[in-house]
Design a protein around this nucleic acid. Structure first.
Lengths: 205, 205
DNA sequence: TCTGGATCCAAACATACGTTTTAAACATCT
DNA sequence: AGATGTTTAAAACGTATGTTTGGATCCAGA
């Protein structure tokens, strides 16, 4: 493995652990077994290194299980939506402690230009696939606005186990961890499908 | 207004904008119209100042609308749950651009000891009141585990409009802002109440 | 083997930062 | 007014950090 890759990996760990400003290039280089000047040789400066780290993290985030698509099971949209939710929850809970997840969380709290790229490249396609699945699962009965609300609601229920992890751990000792992924996913799925069954009848309000 | 308060307010703004490490005491003092040494005089050091800023922010976060309680309307738990959700969503969307919200988001991404205090003092009581409301709204038909899942699900659907704001803005031009608070809240409430109606019938799976 | 470019390293540089020092300005009380 | 304690101001200190420098080392290709 080249020194450049070593630095990239070390930088990912350090930036995830301490953030951009608190993470020092000396720490990165020590952890990579390289000299201090290596960062400025291989990458132009610390900022450029950070940008490459984010792209590196984003590329490596997709590996693992492939995302369940509506096109894979066009005749069973509800089942496939459940698979998608399970996949997403597992991904979130798993990436909770990883560098990728922490880098993403940091970017959300303090967006840089790099977030634009991540949004367009990584999040947009995932979100759109969810839109297709929800639309199919409810039989196309939702208009665009309601569809978007449903998607955000599903994502929110999954995301809270990632973004709110620090708080959940401090609120209730038996918090939700990776081992609860399937239980959580089935709960969310059940809730989502139930709401579709009655989403066209607007009796109350 | 005393210099100490000026520094506290300036520090809140600076820390919210740039975070703890990137926010400098020189920047804070300039913004407060004070001398650099003022921080170390009034507060012991930068770290102590940050701790006091968090507490200051947390204290000022509760002002505004009071939280709807189950005890206020013991006979209409569903209605009161809707009021709670509306209150919470409004609070989140409103605090999205404020210093308090950004400080909280930062603490979530990079927890310090101060988060423990915030969890116990600020979040725990809010979360417990939600638990009481959900329990009452569904007629006590949920066990502790399911109740907790429901609460987290509701909080997640609200929270995503705050934590995911940066991403939502970049995904879809017509994103959700403060003016959509009521629409969002009623959507979440409708969804939650619907799931209670059928939460005891476990036909599928 | 010689050469030229690529890579790596130890040291130094410049600067920004948190903190301390010293003294002046101010306020309060007798 | 004078003494005393509190607050502010300017300057400097020590250090950590990003970056640069100049030369050493490595490694194909002629």
């Amino acid at each position: 493995m080249s020194t450049k890759e070593d630095i990239l990996n070390a930088a990912m760990a350090v930036f995830a652990e301490h953030g951009f400003h608190a993470g020092t290039v000396r720490d990165i280089c020590d952890q990579a077994g390289a000299n201090v000047a290596a960062v400025n040789y291989h990458f132009h400066d610390k900022t450029s290194l950070y940008a490459e780290v984010l792209q590196h993290a984003y590329r490596n985030a997709g590996i693992g299980e492939p995302m369940p698509l509506l096109a894979d099971e066009p005749d069973h949209p509800a089942k496939q939506l459940g698979a998608w939710i399970a996949w997403y929850v597992r991904r979130l809970l798993h990436s909770g402690g990883t560098d990728v997840g922490r880098l993403m969380a940091r970017e959300m709290a303090e967006p840089t230009e790099a977030l634009d790229y991540l949004a367009k490249g990584a999040v947009q396609p995932v979100f759109m696939e969810l839109g297709r699945l929800v639309d199919a699962a409810c039989g196309g009965s939702l208009d665009e606005r309601a569809l978007k609300l449903q998607c955000v609601a599903i994502v929110g229920q999954c995301l809270v186990f990632h973004t709110g992890r620090a708080m959940l751990e401090r609120l209730d000792p038996p918090h939700f961890g990776y081992e609860d992924a399937d239980e959580i996913a089935s709960h969310i799925t059940k809730w989502a499908l139930r709401s579709f069954d009655t989403s066209n009848v607007d009796a109350e309000t």
